[in-house]
């Protein structure tokens, strides 16, 4: 395998208000691989990405990227570090006042002093990679959800980052664009050799591209391993999640008092 992991998460604790979201999460994300983080919705997968990106500060624990402690950095150094990262958001998060071309050019314009012709070449190259070179003059409002996500992907890789974070890349996509995205993520990784973190609860697609998988639930890492090893894991919560059983250790019902008593109980809350 490779040398030291690119991203290290050690003993991460985080809580929002009264609810604790992470209670001691440890992870090592190897360089040049696709690592998937999976878990039922509401377990804070997106929060984990925000912690890695330095947008949130943990209550305890550390996140290190390429040896640098993300949360000990100054604002300036943090922004410098972020240039080496790309992030694909759930909604795409394209800038609605810029067209497709300018959206992809945005990171280049901000962080480099390249001449216009060079920017043009780079933008067209990235758009070609996601198959949307012909859509360059469209506004984000004119794109379908799948296309918007592909443009966002082109923007995320515009600066050739070393690390790319995917936040639910498959959610709400039709089978075709889902397939396109799966293929794109795999191909980008093989071609550019970048380190990728995929947060998702789409099991089949994620397992098909991931090199390594973490399953989190209840604020902790429940299982880890290569996709092939994961099915045989004995933890019932992991099994329920991977096989998609509706009820199990992760209950179908939101905590409530006894159904029978609730129906008959007069004078209770509505």
């Amino acid at each position: 395998m490779t040398d030291s992991p690119f991203v290290e998460v050690e003993g991460l604790h985080y809580s929002r208000g009264e609810t604790s979201i992470f209670r001691g999460v440890d992870m090592a994300i190897p360089r040049g691989r696709i690592t998937a983080i999976m878990g039922p919705s509401g377990t804070g997968k997106t929060t984990l990405l925000k912690l890695i990106g330095g947008q949130l500060t943990p209550d305890a624990g550390r996140v290190r990227i390429a040896g640098e402690d993300v949360h000990a950095l100054s604002r300036k150094a943090l922004f410098r570090l972020r240039r080496r990262m790309g992030m694909l958001f759930q909604s795409g998060a394209l800038f609605s006042d810029l067209d497709v071309y300018e959206n992809v050019a945005f990171p280049l314009r901000v962080h480099t002093d390249l001449p216009e012709s060079m920017i043009r070449d780079l933008v067209l190259l990235k758009l070609q990679a996601v198959g949307l070179r012909g859509a360059r003059q469209l506004m984000p409002a004119e794109l379908s959800g799948g296309m918007a996500r592909r443009v966002a992907l082109a923007r995320a890789i515009a600066l050739d980052p070393e690390l790319i974070l995917y936040d639910e890349p498959f959610v709400g996509q039709d089978p075709i664009s889902m397939g396109v995205l799966v293929q794109l993520i795999r191909r980008l990784n093989d071609a550019l050799g970048l380190t990728a973190v995929v947060v998702s609860h789409d099991i089949k697609e994620t397992l098909s591209i991931a090199d390594y998988v973490y399953v989190i639930a209840d604020g902790q890492v429940m299982a880890r391993g290569a996709p092939a090893d994961l099915d045989v894991d004995r933890d019932p919560r992991v099994r329920q999640f991977v096989h998609g059983e509706p009820d199990g250790p992760v209950p179908f019902h939101y905590p409530a008092r006894d159904f029978y008593a609730d129906l008959l109980g007069a004078g209770g809350p509505k």
Binding site: G53, F89, S91, A93, V110
Partner: peptide, 18 residues
């Protein structure tokens, strides 16, 4: 507000722009 709701502000931050 809409830029915030559609994560444009967050993504700007991740691109390294304040």
């Amino acid at each position: 507000g809409l830029m915030k709701a559609t994560e444009q502000l967050t993504s700007m931050e991740m691109i390294g722009v304040d």
